[in-house]
Computed example of a mutant assay.
Amino acid sequence: MKKIVLSLVALVSFGLANAQMKERGVIEITPKIGTSSFAEYDDDGSTKSNSGVEFGVTTDYYFNNRWSLRSGLIFDKMGGKYENGDPFLWEDQLNYLSVPVNANWHFGSTRKWNLNFGLTPSFLLSAKVNDQKVPDNLIETFQLGLTFGIGYKIEITEKFGLLIDAQWFNGLTNINNGPDNRNITNGGFSFNLGGVIHL
């Protein structure tokens, strides 16, 4: 355990020592993978949350050393778990391709911290309930969400670093296209680890 703690301290110290300020036009690409937890929300409350794997790639285009525009392609598992008054549960398994469009504010003396916020359109790739396909007309194929997050970057070299971040998604549009006309939205968060490649 002591060796792990010392290694982490050394890694952070090395990253601080190699801090590089960004100029206009700098591009960073970040492949990342993480774990997510999502639920569905309606007027009566929320479902139990499900869990899944989130992965994809984001790109930051820097306007100066404080601000960048972040976008990319992210595979998200959303949906939720429903309880029927007894131990029986059924789970909506909704897989989306999300395209975040976020302003990203880099702060701290070495600009290693970031806060990002913006809108994310998501496109439904597949919909299942307990591994059974849902009819195509019951779930809207498009949703729009408000996204925000915080992250910390550890620079290993001038061209490569590690990003640890947490992201939140709040659905703004109804995903339900069923006959009951309920307003249902997705909401949840993910915790991710990525490799930052400075082009």
Score class of each variant (00 low, 15 high):
8 L>T: 08
10 A>V: 11
14 F>D: 04
15 G>W: 08
15 G>F: 10
16 L>S: 12
22 K>S: 09
22 K>D: 04
23 E>T: 13
28 E>M: 02
35 T>Q: 07
41 Y>W: 09
44 D>F: 11
44 D>A: 11
45 G>A: 06
48 K>M: 12
56 G>N: 02
62 Y>V: 06
64 N>F: 08
64 N>Q: 10
65 N>P: 01
66 R>L: 10
70 R>E: 12
72 G>E: 12
77 K>P: 01
79 G>D: 01
80 G>I: 00
81 K>E: 15
83 E>M: 12
83 E>G: 15
85 G>Y: 03
87 P>F: 09
88 F>M: 08
93 Q>T: 07
96 Y>D: 01
96 Y>T: 01
104 N>R: 11
105 W>M: 07
106 H>S: 07
106 H>Q: 06
109 S>V: 11
113 W>P: 02
115 L>G: 07
121 P>T: 04
124 L>C: 08
129 V>S: 11
130 N>I: 01
133 K>N: 15
136 D>F: 03
137 N>V: 06
137 N>Q: 15
141 T>H: 13
142 F>P: 00
145 G>W: 00
147 T>H: 05
149 G>A: 13
152 Y>W: 06
154 I>K: 04
157 T>W: 10
158 E>S: 15
161 G>F: 00
167 Q>P: 00
172 L>H: 09
173 T>L: 07
178 G>D: 13
179 P>C: 09
180 D>S: 15
181 N>D: 13
182 R>V: 06
185 T>H: 02
185 T>D: 05
186 N>Q: 08
187 G>R: 15
187 G>W: 06
190 S>K: 02
194 G>K: 04
195 G>A: 15
199 L>S: 03
